[in-house]
Design a binder for these strands. Structure first.
Lengths: 115, 115
DNA sequence: ACATCGTATCGACGTTTGTCAATGCGTGTG
DNA sequence: CACACGCATTGACAAACGTCGATACGATGT
């Protein structure tokens, strides 16, 4: 699984506040997945820590201390962020480096502006 | 309660990708409140319906049918959206009109871009 | 091969969440 | 006044969530 459906970058051809129509149920669900992933203080913090990291990335071992949670819990949160398409995982040696997926963030921000 | 703390419009004096630092725990918590409110498909739908409404507003009776949930449940969701500062309530006659609070949306979108 | 280290996964737990049906509370209308 | 209507609140309950400790997995180094 782990579909990673990045909110849909549609927005057909709109101009300025042009007779909006409500989003479909499925689109609402996809948006909610991303927002729900960011709906936890710890995950917001994790995302922020990763973005603030050296190359905009960080491994789990760098994250457990700052958030003050067990390694297992952090790993769990990373999984949720990854499934929402907010971060990407890259195995380097025995470390797992996570980096922020900017397009997803941008799509989410854009989606917010459509309301 | 119902603090309605709109994410903080800080962003001191930054330019282009300038040595980011992680957000504080409290800021993370405030952000998470807003995103958590949008972390449910029904609430995304509600927000969208309101924004798509006549004057960018809608009363609960207009919302129950589209989302297919009981009136009590819709009222519950509206409360959460209101507490997150995402919508405002205005009593007009015997109807309660909800409207989207654009600044909160914008602040959330801006916050997303800081990652 | 073996021991070690960094992560992921599992099982269990208390808490929070989304939902409903029922009830309470204002507000306008007969 | 009494009644109907729109909305909020309550109580209850199943499902989902966040957390931990323990365990399993995969890569490194000895």
């Amino acid at each position: 699984m782990t579909s990673v459906t990045p909110i849909a970058a549609d927005a057909p051809e709109t101009c300025c506040t042009p007779a909006k129509s409500a989003v479909s149920t499925q689109e609402a669900a996809r948006m909610a997945t991303v927002f729900k992933a960011m709906g936890d203080p710890t995950r917001v913090r994790l995302l922020s820590l990763i973005a603030a990291g050296e190359q905009g990335e960080a491994c789990v071992c760098d994250l457990t201390d700052p958030v003050g949670l067990s390694q297992g819990t952090v790993s769990h949160h990373m999984r949720i962020l990854a499934e929402a398409g907010l971060v990407e995982r890259e195995q380097r040696g025995k470390w797992a480096y996570y980096s922020v997926v900017r397009p997803t963030l941008d799509a989410a921000a854009a989606a917010l502006r459509t309301f």
